[in-house]
Amino acid sequence: MKNDIHPVQIILYEGDGAQALAPSERFALISQMLDKGYAVLRVTASESGSLPTLSPGIPLTVIGNFDGSAPDLEDAAGRTGITTHDISGLAVDAVLALIEQGRVADQTGLNQPGEAGMWKPWFPVIDYDRCTNCMQCLSFCLFDVYGVDDAQKIQVKNQDNCKTNCPACSRVCPEVAIMFPKYASGPINGDVVNQADLEREKMKVDISSLLGGDIYSRLRDRSEAAKSRFSKERSPDKALEERKRCLTKLQQSGIIPDEVLAELDLASLPSPEEIQRKAAEAAARAEAARQAAAAESS
């Protein structure tokens, strides 16, 4: 899983027994720790009696101006390793280096924003106040992001499979129920859904019908044409070109944005045959879930 890295928990302790930092120093320290992917809790004198519940097993680092001597702390339950550092007189960079050294020594992972190979948390979020369980998203997604729970309710099952910056499934949702909080514009970003958005969705469905059915029909047609060509002259380059043409068609229809196409590794995308197989599987799963949901409600 790409998203199973739990960050080190940092407590900036400014309660009893520690000196408070200057506000500018506090801001510089917290903002830089956050930008590196750490989570930081600031504890003040008035709140020092109510320390937070700790995530078991996730290391905790407590930093503070302890005037030369950091206290020894341990988790009474023995589940969480606690490290303390006195940061009196240290510059922000030095504090960050201290925390980083401890993290590396503990072999604790950190999903660092902006670092190559790190996971950008991009995945669909379903608004169940709007979702009608129509399964369009499950039918549409070729990357098995969606599934159903025991009650046949649509779920985001494999969020790691989602293609970064691609909001395509939210565009096919007839109820505008799928959000990508990091998307630039509304209502996909979670902004309020207004009547104009709903009308636009309706229009999209109508246009799709006018163009000759769902996008899988188009992909299937292209796949059939490609098959006959590939049977005569099967070449990876041509297969790649075919996938590119399919995607360009989808991009022209406004379903997949330019920037996503530009970033996609086309060679890693399913082949036309796989697309056809996955579409058939997804459609069958969606239909089974629809029928099961209907049977349950009757």
Binding site: N3, D4, I5, H6, P7, I30, L34, D35, K36, G37, Y38, A39, V40, L41, R42, V43, T44, S46, E47, P52, T53, S55, P56, N111, P113, W119, P121, W122, F123, V125, Q159, P181, K182
Partner: peptide
């Protein structure tokens, strides 16, 4: 006193307790 996180989406993805 406040809790600050690098990214709420990431936290939600990890189902952080």
């Amino acid at each position: 006193a406040f809790e600050s996180v690098a990214d709420l989406c990431e936290m939600a993805a990890r189902k952080d307790e």
